[in-house]
Nucleic acid binder design. Structure first.
Lengths: 231, 231
DNA sequence: AATTGAACATACTACCGAGTATGTTGTCAA
DNA sequence: TTGACAACATACTCGGTAGTATGTTCAATT
């Protein structure tokens, strides 16, 4: 419960989603796990999954292994929990604009913006999601983790399909144009996801500053997709 | 010297650069190291640096540790050698368009295309370069590796600056427009680099197919930077 | 033919890290 | 007050991996 300054932002983000109408996190994240998930996400981002030891996470928590293994069965279990929370952040982020009745182009813009902002504001979790996808794209895992990993990828694919649908609608409306849909989607996500890698919170940074970054990424993507610039 | 089908492409790429006028690879890569570097690059891409054991590389080589440690002092040494070769591929790729006298916009297009194509055709090496940058952005390494890692980052920064210069020229010419130059460069490189992650060689694929992918990425980037579409 | 050294293979050590087994503390119910 | 259980901490085991020490082969000198 005692969150120091460096963890406060993420703890707030988790609390925000947990407080949202969705029942997703309520089922997954219990009280005693929040701090562990936050610190684990930071470790996984800082050193990568393979290089992060459970002792690293425990050290950042100011406690020992015992606490972690009390709540999580294994290192992989902890990792997947982090990644799944990350995906839930994303669903929560695009939820409103997804339900919108606006034209496809406007929905696409809003979803892209919300997604990108989620990358920035829940960066450590998103970095873990990324690593999970990377591990999957290769294919070197044990059968136990396989199942859990496949579930994560399935979630990710479903999420991706939401964007795909809106993209196709916007394309049908003539608002954007691209050659290969698969490549276009890859490039869009890579651009929107890129803050995962290069974003660093500045001291004194405001929420508006972060929105500004997300806006630039979104503009870049829409222009890249051949959208006519808005006024 | 006996390269099987799966390694032939990369071996050809190394031979191509080694045969080029530049003296870069001649100094770095010796005969007995080529196969090792190729297999190491593949392993690092497949499992990541941390998860790759020297025995993994040896197994892929069809030999044992002894061979690797005969040429490379440590695992880190091998990794940096791979990454440095990767950077040399990139310099070689953009060399021609860099020296061009054409307008900045045209040079930028050529460089972006060449860079992207290099990502595709030397993918495993570029993936290692990426990992090196990632490790650096965090900052958890031993002092010995630090020096070597800093050298790699310096090379990478210098390479990035080449693009920065041309981008600014093109911007001054009014050919492109963007808000924050740093973000614009990040988004450009992320898009051009993205094949590192999602490209997979298809059976029966031609060099033209790869060029087509690079072209789509380049078009996306230039459009993202606000360039007026060419005829 | 003997020597030398490069290019490996084999056999080992030392350590680190995941997972476990067990102890300790506090709290709450009965 | 006393179990009883949750929430940890402590102290171990044990497998994997980087690195080393030492053999072995072969080809080129001399």
């Amino acid at each position: 419960m005692t969150a120091n300054a460096s963890t406060q932002g993420i703890a707030r983000a988790i609390a925000g989603v947990a407080a949202s109408p969705g029942t997703l996190t309520a089922a997954l994240v219990e009280e005693g796990q929040i701090d562990i998930l936050n610190m684990a996400a930071q470790c996984f981002m800082a050193r990568g999954y393979a290089s992060t030891s459970i002792d690293d996470v425990a050290r950042r928590l100011g406690s020992t292994k015992g606490r972690i293994y009390h709540f999580f069965a294994s290192k992989a279990d902890l990792f997947f929990a982090v990644a799944e929370v990350g995906m839930q952040f994303n669903y929560a982020a695009i939820d409103a604009s997804l339900k919108s009745e606006a034209p496809a182009m406007e929905r696409l813009r809003d979803m892209a913006f919300a997604h990108c902002l989620s990358m920035i504001e829940t960066q450590p979790f998103q970095h873990s999601v990324w690593q999970g996808v990377e591990i999957h794209l290769r294919g070197s895992t044990t059968p136990e983790q396989r199942e859990r990993l496949n579930a994560l990828i399935e979630t990710r694919d479903h999420y991706s399909a939401l964007f795909r649908k809106v993209m196709e609608e916007a394309r049908a409306e003539g608002a954007i144009h691209y050659d290969d849909p698969g490549i276009a989607r890859q490039l869009m996500f890579m651009t929107l996801n890129s803050p995962i890698f290069w974003y660093k919170p500045r001291p004194g940074e405001t929420a508006e500053d972060r929105k500004n970054i997300a806006r630039q990424c979104t503009d870049f993507v829409l222009a890249g997709l051949g959208a006519t610039p808005t006024a």
